[in-house]
Design a protein around this nucleic acid. Structure first.
Lengths: 213, 213
DNA sequence: CAAAATTTTAAACAAAAGTTTAAAAAAATT
DNA sequence: AATTTTTTTAAACTTTTGTTTAAAATTTTG
């Protein structure tokens, strides 16, 4: 029997708020919802976090951090091959998303709605575009804009979680199948990415012919 | 010089509401926002649409229709090959999304937040799973759950539009580049999908060997 | 052109939501 | 143990928001 450790009130509030914000969105979540969920007085939320917006900002920054920052070191690691990076990215990220499946849709959507978090965005974009991953992709395929492959890789990893609300109702069985499919993708996506890198366009073939001439 | 045709008030309201709902979400959009955007009196919105929720329902159904219903006939067409279906899907859908880039994130997000639109979802799932496309995919690759390829195809088409708020700020130049990349994907995605279909797993190779024995 | 129907407006209403206040309760300090 | 500090509570306050009302303006109809 585990001793129910007394959670700190401010954390209890933040956890409840995060749960509600990620599932219902910012505007649809009220202070009273958060108070009810965390079983504290309404005034305590303002006592600890000053305002709803400030509480949201803190949670948003945390979620953003969770969702993006962990992949940066993988992209920037100069000691790994492209194949190793992809495998690492697919495994770590899918494992992470299985734990927090609502995070992508939440962050991407709030990012669209709130034009505030711009600084973080610009930073992210710069870091990705100058990463070791991009260099390795360009070395492998110089004809095609590397952004295409980033879209493909991230899309194959993240998109099922964004589609999840469409395909799976609240049935537990379906959730089981979904998780199984995600686990299958852990080894399939690296395979597919490799096929994509090696698929030749008409232009590529043309260039090869003219070169050998 | 085009004569500015006088738009019907009820349509003016609906169009403004759609614009605001899709960019800001349901809860963040107020009746007063809609009134301001469409330059009508607040009371007119309730006069024509009874309530905010009813107006939203109408717009949501329209958006849902736009986003999903047009692809169903392509998936179900028994007179086209798998390759033709993919090409048609990629071309039509990317062209459509270039015109309404915020639609996917909006619909997918509201679908998650509002557990109301369930009927439409179940219908959609059934239609897709019994479609000609799924049969053709299974005929081509029986080892892998066809849902994988649906995720990949839709992901490659839709995901860039979901990532758009992250990568592109409001700069027009970046929007130009984005559109160019999407246009490139029109011929790249069918190519990639073909590569993905033909990429062999270890299990496939094993099965081939044991068969030829 | 007058009457009727429809559309539009300003104002008010009621409920919801974020925030503040001041006192009570609990915990920490001396 | 008494005092000070921190945490929690109930209640009220202020805005915001969806909705309604009743009158005015406009359009349609007979």
């Amino acid at each position: 029997m585990s001793i129910p450790k007394k959670e700190i009130t401010s954390d209890k509030i933040k956890d409840s708020a995060k749960k509600l914000f990620t599932t219902k969105g910012y505007s649809a979540t009220t202070i009273r919802d958060i108070a009810k969920e965390s079983q504290v007085n309404i005034a305590l939320i303002n006592y600890y976090y000053r305002s709803k917006e400030n509480l949201f900002r803190i949670i948003m920054e945390e979620s953003f951090e969770q969702l993006f920052k962990q992949i940066i070191p993988i992209l920037n690691n100069k000691d790994t091959t492209l194949e190793e990076k992809i495998e690492s990215l697919v495994n770590n990220y899918l494992e992470f998303l299985l734990e927090f499946p609502e995070l992508p849709l939440f962050v991407l959507n709030e990012l669209k709605n709130n034009p505030k978090h711009l600084e973080t965005k610009i930073n992210l974009k710069k870091k990705v575009s100058k990463s070791s991953l991009i260099n390795q992709i360009m070395a492998k395929n110089s004809e095609i804009n590397p952004l295409h492959f980033v879209f493909n890789l991230l899309g194959m990893i993240v998109f099922p979680f964004i589609m999840k609300p469409v395909i799976s109702s609240s049935k537990l069985l379906e959730n089981e199948i979904f998780n199984q499919i995600i686990n299958e993708r852990k080894h399939l996506i690296p395979l597919w990415m490799n096929s994509i890198f090696n698929s030749k366009t008409e232009i590529d073939i043309f260039n090869q012919i003219t070169k050998t001439k």
